[in-house]
Write a protein that binds this DNA or RNA. Structure first.
Lengths: 339, 339
DNA sequence: CTGAAAGCGCTTACAG
DNA sequence: CTGAAAGCGCTTACAG
């Protein structure tokens, strides 16, 4: 396919391949005249330099990978979050003339592709909880930015949001509205994970208000709309004392609201609901969702920026950057009717 | 970085690089014993063959690109559709041991990267309306599958859904519910585009029912929730005769429903709404959205399959595959109150 | 079964 | 300013 090579251009332009290389890369000294001539031939022959050959010399690919664990899990599958993130990453990469590869990898899969393709770095999304994976990632000795991964290694470059503050803001809002008996819909509370951090923030808000932590009802469930709907039914049947539910994901909140509606529980009159993320469509729901906003697109762009910095300056100091979150007050959380 | 090369392995294992190559690729005849020895050294040295070098020989990269036009447009930006599609593609590609690159390209941008990186093919999502782009894509002489692109070239490999049938099913449902004055929220009706096809289906349903086409009110607007909300307000104020609105996207329908709610127009009692796509969350909305379902994940997987077939058999005949759609009846469309 | 050698398409000192 | 040559890390006939 890619028939025309640097040789063809050199031949046709009556110069050496070194000269062609120079004009292609704008390096070395080339007279305006020969440059011109070479350019013409390149144009005429439709010459495209082979990145593969370049990579072989440079040991650089101008490509980064975005690694997402377990694409098959429905959780990721239906989560608009990831698309927004990837778009942010692609945008940032493009700006730096890098291209991006998408990979989903399982806990036990190899990261050999990073070496094989001479990737310049990668952005790893979400937590790989088991240490072996982490070690394998570190072992490849390439620039890596970890997104939303609570890892306790100060030498790792991490980008997270202020999950604790998010939990705090949501809980505080509910408390200020008079709620005392609050349900929490969260995913698995693994040691120092995203949801554990959010819960910690909730605890802080409770303590600040002088409320006992055991008036909190924790539901450690799968993060999905399906689960939220089912949980709402369960709360209605078995936990009548609850007047508010804080879901650590918008998608869960969407399910909750629907589930309460199924049971004729009015949101927010009878039950307040708060979500987390501020996905674009929750503003248009009925009731519009009160939630904790994080700027996912910015997260993607910032991740690339961090990565590029590491690529340009391999010895740059590791940073743990934490993006702010914000309470977005809409309609789904209101005053406690049983205050 | 990638220090260890085939030479190092050869040296350490006391064989030639040809032999190493053979055991790595399982080609040629190698004695079990040497194979074993080489394997050990590979393991020990942590040797990863360089894809770049391989590509240089093979002119193959085992990588395909997913090309999405205009990532910056909010339309794509907030559309979960694309993520689901990409996941489907990645899954299919992985199955064939291919990796995927993500690119957004503008109408006037170059497709040089396909040649430069020796990509094995690409999936192009959405229509590039102007012919020059299409010509440039064709000019690169690589396997390409066009997704949702209405292109009138029988030699192009295309994968679409049955848009016309989708429009037909939605309209027919509304007509059966007694609606006569129907609004259509669609995007730009470019010559032979996706939305034009859907509209054509709507027309068919109207004609079948003996209804005049001018009782249809077409709103050619931007595809977004924001626009839907605004449009609902406008319909309420200026088009009181309408009793149903068919949006050619779920995201538009979400906005519509919210907009009608703003104006105290009850859906479906006073106004029926139908969407298109069946994004996962619309089932949980209140009211749950009646919509036309397409299987986006399947679409992604099928696209790769078509592409792989082209890669394996370059002369395979071009096909235009059209995936079926399905009416999903939920709550947002009901009997016409003014029938 | 195994190895020496050419060549893929570039880039990069090094001469001139 | 320009070119000859080496080398990046592989694969692939071709000998043996």
């Amino acid at each position: 396919m890619n028939r025309v090579s640097i040789k063809d251009v050199a031949l046709q332009a009556k110069v050496s391949i070194a000269t062609v290389s120079n004009v292609v890369n704008g390096k070395g000294r080339v007279s305006a005249q020969t440059a011109r001539k070479v350019q013409d031939v390149i144009e005429q022959l439709q010459y495209y330099p082979s990145q593969s050959a370049r990579n072989l010399k440079d040991k650089q690919s101008y490509m980064i990978a975005v690694v997402v664990p377990y694409l098959k899990e429905a959780k990721l599958y239906d989560n608009p979050f990831y698309w927004k993130l990837i778009v942010g990453i692609e945008e940032g990469a493009k700006h730096k003339r890098f291209q991006v590869m998408l990979m989903d990898v399982n806990d036990d899969e190899s990261f050999a592709f990073v070496q094989e393709r001479h990737l310049d770095g990668m952005v790893v999304v979400g937590t790989f909880h088991n240490e072996p994976v982490l070690e394998r990632i570190s072992a490849i000795q390439k620039p890596v930015v970890f997104l939303d991964s609570y890892l306790e290694h100060p030498y790792l470059h991490q980008l997270l949001i202020d999950d604790e503050q998010g939990g705090y803001l949501g809980a505080k809002h509910l408390i200020e509205l008079g709620h005392r008996q609050i349900g929490i819909m969260c995913g698995l509370l693994v040691n120092g994970g995203v949801h554990a951090a959010r819960l910690k923030g909730v605890h802080t808000a409770m303590k600040e208000a002088g409320l006992p932590l055991d008036s909190l009802q924790i539901f450690e469930v799968h993060t999905s709309a399906e689960t939220g709907r089912f949980l709402a039914h369960r709360i209605n049947d078995q936990f009548p004392q609850l007047t508010a539910t804080f879901s650590f994901s918008d998608i869960g909140a969407v399910g909750l609201i629907r589930g309460f509606h199924d049971k004729k529980v009015s949101v927010p009159a009878d039950m307040s609901v708060i979500g987390f993320d501020d996905m674009h469509y929750v503003e248009y729901m009925n009731p519009a969702l009160t939630t904790i906003r994080q700027d996912v697109h910015m997260k993607g762009k910032l991740a690339v920026e961090m990565l590029m910095e590491m690529i340009d300056h391999p010895s740059v100091e590791a940073r743990q950057i934490r993006l702010p979150v914000e309470l977005i007050t809409r309609e789904s959380a209101g005053p406690c009717s049983r205050a």
